[in-house]
Amino acid sequence: MTKILFTKDHEYIVVEGDIGAVGITDFAQGQLGDVVFVELPEIGKVTKPGDQAGVVESVKAASDVFAPIAGEVVEVNKALEENPALVNEDAQGAGWFYKVKIGNPAELDALLDEAAYKAHLESLA
């Protein structure tokens, strides 16, 4: 069973067992516009929540991607090297950035569920 959680900075994590797939939300890709390059973390990198875990470059600007939770990077989305536009086309699916082995499942409780993230977006509008 999978569930998706969000940060206020517009990252998401899709949790499946002890692995989480991290990316930026559909709202975030819409704000950035055309993504032309994604800098992914190195496999084996250990993050804390809020650590810089990648960079997404749109035509206009570079934006940091922050780790939603602690853990070790176990896989990166190689498809983004050839086709960074996947982030625009399917941000919360094929456009994931990296997978992390979840270090402390209790940290997930601090993230937003879909309803809370939607409310957060409405508060920004």
Binding site: G33, D34, S58, V59, K60, N88
Partner: peptide, 9 residues
């Protein structure tokens, strides 16, 4: 406008 729905590219 920085861009319209079509996007910069």
């Amino acid at each position: 406008p920085v861009n319209y729905p079509a996007g910069i590219i």
